[in-house]
Amino acid sequence: MINVEHLVKAFGPKLAVNDVSFSVERGEVLGFLGPNGAGKSTTMRMITGYYPPTSGRILVGGHDMVENPIAAKRLIGYLPENAPGYADMTVNGFLNFCAELRGLQGDARKRAVYRAVELCFLEGVLYQSIDTLSKGYKHRTCLAQSLIHDPEVLILDEPTDGLDPNQKHEVRGLIKRLGENKVVIFSTHILEEVEAACSRVIIIDRGRIVASGTPAELKARSPEGKLDEVFRAITLPDTVKHDANHEVRA
């Protein structure tokens, strides 16, 4: 469903993403794990068509994101980092706007909005403007937007960021459910999340894939069977000085 081949993104001389390749099929939940600034968001922004890649290829459902962006974008639902939304719009207005941009009209649009509102528990704030919402509700509003057209591919950048423990649990459950017949890619730096929701994990550090496998496979690499030890062993902390070409192989 998603094929990413030798993806590179350079900002000036700095390589934010350096030769990343992977593919994801329907029914998989892929977790992007990595320290802050590892290139998770940049990779997701390229897959969703926001950043054009410096080099490499992205295929979404067979459509090339650079050559045929509209067809590729139709298949994707995207929750950007920090869950942005138009401050002056109501939740209802915002969701209807997004549904319209997704080509939904009339009754189909009403049904889609209703479904997304139910899925993300937004009934109580439907006519509240977005800038008056708490962080959890704001996040769920943006999540609802990504689900509105029932997309085949869901790309969620830190979907549980800023949520309370109950909401985190809900969202993880939702991701797992949706992952049964869709493609879900989500990023996080919370390790427990990976075990709770992913069928496969890719660990990214300094723009490169440093490890990939099922959560169980990764855990088996540590003598105590703990994911956070594996994570620390293969990613470099921010405090360590490094040269740009430093490669870490797990």
């Binding site: 994707i76 942005p84 939304g85 138009y86 941009l101």
Partner: peptide, 14 residues
């Protein structure tokens, strides 16, 4: 400023 540009430009519109 709001970050909605990312939302808008990843919609299936030019």
């Amino acid at each position: 400023r709001l970050g909605t540009m990312e939302l808008l430009l990843t919609m299936p519109i030019t």
